[in-house]
Amino acid sequence: MGAALSRARQSVTSKTEDDVVEARIAEMVEIGAGFDFGLRGTFCSGPLRDQAFHGTYSVETRTGSLSLGA
């Protein structure tokens, strides 16, 4: 992974197939040419509240994935 872009905590809201969830992004790291990012954070709402996650997001395709756990 590349350099850390942001260590500030930022809240984001996302719609899933089943619900709308809010998450706090603790770290976002650039991967490769700058269109993909590694994410780490904690859910702030819903049944996953207070659970840690990690994942990826592509700015180019506007898609990503999250997995539970740090």
Rank of each mutant, 00 (worst) to 15 (best):
T56D: 06
D19A: 12
M1W: 13
E27C: 10
S11K: 06
L5R: 08
M1N: 14
R49Q: 02
L5Q: 15
V12R: 13
R9V: 04
T13Y: 12
R49I: 09
G41Y: 02
S6P: 10
G46W: 15
T16Q: 15
K15A: 02
E27L: 09
V12E: 06
E27S: 05
A26P: 08
C44S: 03
I31K: 11
G32N: 06
S11R: 06
M1K: 06
H54K: 05
A8F: 14
V29H: 05
A26G: 05
A52I: 12
E30C: 03
R7A: 11
F53A: 13
A4T: 15
G2H: 11
S45N: 01
G41E: 01
F37G: 02
G55M: 12
H54F: 12
Q10S: 08
T42C: 00
L5Y: 12
V21G: 04
M28K: 13
G34P: 04
G55I: 07
E27K: 15
D50W: 03
R9H: 01
D50V: 01
A8H: 06
G46Q: 13
F35Q: 02
S6D: 10
G41D: 00
G2N: 07
R24Q: 00
R49G: 00
L5H: 07
S45V: 00
R24A: 04
T16W: 14
A3C: 14
E17T: 03
I25Q: 01
D36F: 08
M1L: 09
E22S: 09
A33H: 00
M1F: 13
